[in-house]
């Protein structure tokens, strides 16, 4: 992994909106210890804001009663938490063995050639970000691409191109 410890400020304080507040309240009695709420709370932050800012981590520490450093630990240990704003559409391409064997590199190369998008980056218009991730558990339908949480199986360059076109037109 790369270093994830340089936190970014959103420049504004964070607080759960009504939906997330309700979900957090639902979860509270499900755990005998409040530390267990840190991960769900970080998920809620990400759901609401798209990423997890320093301010949001402070908020999670306050809401759960955990040490700030512990929230910091969790946010940086678990790699699905975005510590930078991703693109409007976040593309994950599985890089691990089965997808590698079924030529996931063609997909990565296609994005580089057509969107000028490389792993770890966001397109200039902020529309797409790309991450090469470890095994997504769809090895039988490799290569697999996950966009905004939705899985696209048995991918090839053509299907990826069509998908990007769809997302692009939707974005406009």
């Amino acid at each position: 992994m790369s270093d994830r410890s340089q936190l970014l400020d959103a420049g504004r304080p964070f607080a759960f909106d009504e939906t997330r507040e309700a979900e957090f309240t639902r979860l509270e009695p499900r755990y005998p210890e409040r530390d267990s709420l840190i991960m769900p709370a970080l998920w809620l932050v990400q759901e609401q804001q798209g990423w997890i800012s320093r301010e949001a981590m402070e908020y999670v520490a306050e809401r759960t009663g955990a040490y700030h450093a512990q929230v910091f630990e969790l946010a940086t240990f678990y790699t699905m938490y975005h510590l930078r704003p991703p693109g409007k559409h976040h593309i994950c391409i599985c890089r691990t063995l089965s997808c590698y064997l079924r030529e996931k590199q063609l997909l990565v190369d296609w994005l580089a050639a057509n969107l000028d998008l490389v792993p770890g980056a966001v397109t200039e218009d902020g529309r797409f970000s790309l991450e090469e991730v470890e095994c997504l558990g769809h090895c039988g339908s490799a290569p697999v691409v996950q966009v905004d949480g939705v899985f696209y199986e048995d991918m090839d360059e053509e299907k990826l191109g069509a998908l990007i076109e769809d997302l692009r037109s939707e974005a406009i």
Partner: peptide, 13 residues
């Protein structure tokens, strides 16, 4: 609790 070990693998610090 001011200190923590962040990241993982050989990026842990």
């Amino acid at each position: 609790g001011e200190l923590g070990i962040v990241n993982r693998a050989d990026q842990a610090r």
